[in-house]
Nucleic acid binder design. Structure first.
Lengths: 344, 344
DNA sequence: TTGAAAGCGCTAACAA
DNA sequence: TTGTTAGCGCTTTCAA
């Protein structure tokens, strides 16, 4: 039943050569006569020989694959980033293995171990919102496994990082709300220890400061599941609505939070909902279809994926240990919508 | 630099045993004394021994991984299906390798070869909209590689299939439009040779027939890139709008086509756009945020992924060749929206 | 109950 | 230029 692939041995036998000669011929080896080489290549082509990558992995201790850990592929930012990752990886001969943490630190560790044991040559990681202990990553990194972080990064591991200019993106979004007349601007964000949470919060604060608007702790709502759980977002949004000093706007810190916030508002009192302006980070390409006017901050997800992958492959293929690591910061883009919609 | 994992040899040396004994102990073997076994297991646990899955793959000629080929992960239906796939696969000890065809038949073949050579134990496939030659799949399947098709299936390979009740879903959607007063119902669909295209077209036709509405060839627009290319959809939508007998509604056949159609209409004359009712297959969970009223047909994507994976694992682990294949058909769900929106 | 040895497919050091 | 051999980590006959 099971199919028997052609091996180097088959070729050797058929051609009356040794396996090593065949291997050399195939491998573009130097110690080989042009004639033998031609014969082998021709025959291999004819019988459609495919080298067994598993045997190669075992031998070379590398798999020509890179592992990816993200929280969710059903998230526009990450699916776009993955497309960027693939575009570079495939062109460089690497296979991409995608895993999802679903924002769970435990699942992240399982995926990490799985990928490591499968001997991926390197790792592309965006941390889960639950992660605050990165020792598992550190351990593998210290042992020599190349890792590049993107989007949700950590400062505790010295390696390449690729992030959006979260500070500026958040600043711009907040400033936009201020310029639209908002003064009571709330901030809906993910768990506090995430790098993007800090950076975006700082941008938000800085915009308030610039316009002499006092920062209010109660206007910041943290969703520790990063938007995975609609209930959590609804509770957060409702607690904002119920504040004595009801916000006139909300700046949401990521994709899921932005749409989750809109959904939560839609469920609430329409009068309240329509009086609250929303801005948020999102890479959805459906925002123009939304009933609510939504000005959004878009991250260059595809490029981030590409750059992270290029950096990772550089690390993997570097002959000497790399000691000079960089953090690439890419600009976000504001997508301003002025659609005015009346819901009857 | 590169880290040296612990091998069975290390354990054998440390414990003064042979590698085969250690292997037996680890593998729950029978020919082993309880005592030796305990010692080995204890030590392995202590030094955190992890078997090398690559060596195992080479030996056993199986990888404990399953390959997935879909057109796009940035598509709600597929990302949800993948979550279903993962949920079953991980619980059964299988790793999932996701690849995207981006609706390209060429890319599909490359992915297929890649996965096959990586010796995945089985394949979960939803065909690209460009695919009409499935001989590559057939070849591998004939050689004994288990394949389960889902969503976009083929009748040319005798194996398990998991699909939604596309006929009924399309019928319901069309009937809904008819019951809403529409009589000139257009159909925006993917390439003609796709299984889902045929099934959904048939459902659409049957609804028309039931209500004695003549079927008009010019009302059916095929997008051969299945919605990957916005331009193509816009051309299709515009050619519908420009018909002498302008449709009063459009039934879109898949996720991308549904949102693409809405986007295309939004770009066109607002008067025209607002006079055309849209229904479509989609698994987006953002439809309630849309300005346009959209009644949609939702596929049980997660369950479809789960069932397809269970069937595949059954095939993989079956001792004897399976000859009795099934096609599982799951019901779709109509999500009716009556939101009335006035766009100013 | 244990160990020695072969072999999965491939590469590479060493010999010829 | 080619062949022989060992070995990557593991399982599994076959002997002991």
């Amino acid at each position: 039943m099971k199919f028997e692939p052609i091996t180097i041995k088959d070729i050797a036998k058929a051609l009356g050569l040794s396996t090593s000669t065949v291997s050399r011929a195939l491998r573009d080896g130097y110690e080989i006569s042009a004639e033998t080489r031609r014969i082998v290549l021709e025959y291999a082509e004819k019988i459609n020989y495919q080298p067994n990558p598993i045997a190669l992995s075992l031998k070379e201790r590398r798999s020509h694959s890179i592992g990816v850990i993200v929280c969710e592929i059903a998230n526009n930012f990450f699916s776009q980033a993955i497309n960027g990752i693939e575009s570079i990886a495939y062109n460089s001969g690497y296979h991409v293995i995608i895993t999802q943490s679903h924002e769970s630190a435990g699942r992240e560790v399982i995926n990490l171990k799985h990928l490591a044991s499968r001997s991926v040559d390197g790792l592309l990681v965006s941390l889960s919102s639950e992660t605050n202990d990165i020792s598992h990553f550190k351990e593998l990194h210290d042992k020599g496994l190349p890792i590049v972080f993107f989007d949700r990064v950590t400062n505790d591991i010295y390696t390449h990082k690729v992030i959006a200019n979260n500070f500026k993106g958040a600043f711009d979004a907040t400033e936009y709300l201020i310029n639209s007349g908002c003064r009571n601007i709330a901030h809906l964000t993910a768990s506090a220890h995430l790098s993007i949470t800090k950076e975006r919060l700082d941008g938000y604060k800085e915009a308030l400061r610039k316009y002499h608007i006092p920062f209010r702790e109660e206007y910041v709502q943290y969703c520790n599941h990063g938007g995975m759980i609609q209930d959590e977002m609804e509770r957060a949004v409702n607690s904002l609505i119920e504040l004595e000093n009801q916000p006139d706007s909300i700046f949401a810190a990521n994709d899921k939070l932005t749409t989750g916030c809109l959904l939560a508002l839609k469920k609430s009192d329409p009068a309240v909902a329509s009086s609250i302006k929303i801005t948020g980070f999102t890479n959805s390409n459906l925002t123009e279809l939304f009933a609510t006017s939504l000005t959004s901050v878009r991250q260059p997800a595809f490029e981030m994926g590409q750059i992270a992958t290029s950096l990772l492959i550089e690390l993997i293929e570097s002959k000497r240990p790399v000691t000079d690591f960089q953090t690439r910061v890419l600009d976000t883009e504001m997508i301003i919508k002025n659609k005015v919609v009346a819901v009857s």
